[in-house]
């Protein structure tokens, strides 16, 4: 054993190669003078050498093959999962689009019955048997007209927009629509129409607020 605790610490410090020059000189001088510490040092050195000399062993033959055999089989799903993890914003966006589309589609399906619907004005002739809506000559429809599942003949005047869902419109030479005429036939167009409407609603809402 080292002659005292201080030198035991010193021995380990030396073995860890953490002594500065002056400490090392002092340490060597002590080892020369102290038999106990010299013996302790020799024993430590021997233990370290024995451990270091224990030969380096190698992995058994076929090691790599057996690791590879145990690897999980490549799965397409894993690719997909990995992709999802890397693109969270795309996932959120497509989820949003999917939900929007499906909710609008369900509205479309709900209201795509055969019944003729007219929203906007009472000053029109509605012929339910033939599925016709006529804006008579000389008549002025104030605001927008919205017709579903029917043919529209405009002989008079509409001051707003005319929207025709699942039908067609006929503008007589004498007729006049001040706003836009829009025909919507397909589900996709219907969705587009709704998206536009929501956007313009939001936009005009913002404008109104600004005006206040």
């Amino acid at each position: 054993m080292a002659c005292n605790k201080k030198y035991e610490t010193q021995l380990h410090k030396y073995l860890d190669g953490e002594m500065i020059e002056s400490e090392r000189t002092e340490f060597y001088n002590h080892l020369d003078a102290c038999e106990e510490c010299a013996a302790h040092y020799k024993e430590l050195k021997k233990a370290v050498m024995l451990v270091q000399s224990s030969s380096h062993i190698e992995a058994p033959e076929g090691f790599t093959e057996s690791v590879m055999d145990r690897l999980p089989v490549k799965k397409k799903r894993k690719h997909w999962k990995k992709w999802m993890r890397q693109h969270p914003i795309l996932i959120a966006a497509s989820l949003f689009v999917f939900l929007m589309t499906s909710s609008l589609l369900s509205v479309w399906v709900d209201q795509s019955g055969e019944e003729l619907t007219v929203i906007g004005s009472q000053d029109v002739k509605i012929d339910r048997e033939n599925g016709m809506v006529i804006v008579p000559e000389g008549e002025i429809v104030e605001g927008d007209l919205f017709v579903k599942n029917g043919r529209v003949e405009v002989e008079g005047e509409i001051t707003g927009d005319l929207t025709v869902i699942n039908g067609e419109q006929y503008l007589a030479s004498a007729g006049n629509v001040s706003g836009e005429i829009e025909e919507v036939d397909q589900a996709l167009e219907w969705i587009w129409y709704h998206t536009k409407r929501i956007t313009s609603d939001v936009f005009s809402f913002g404008e109104e607020k600004n005006n206040e």
């Binding site: 380096h56 062993i57 190698e58 790599t64 690897l71």
Partner: peptide
């Protein structure tokens, strides 16, 4: 997911890892 590349990696480190484990 190049498994051949992984086999190369195993070859590079197998002895050291096995040594520690042993």
């Amino acid at each position: 997911e190049d498994q051949d590349a992984f086999a190369e990696l195993v070859d590079l480190y197998k002895d050291k890892v096995f040594q520690i484990a042993y």
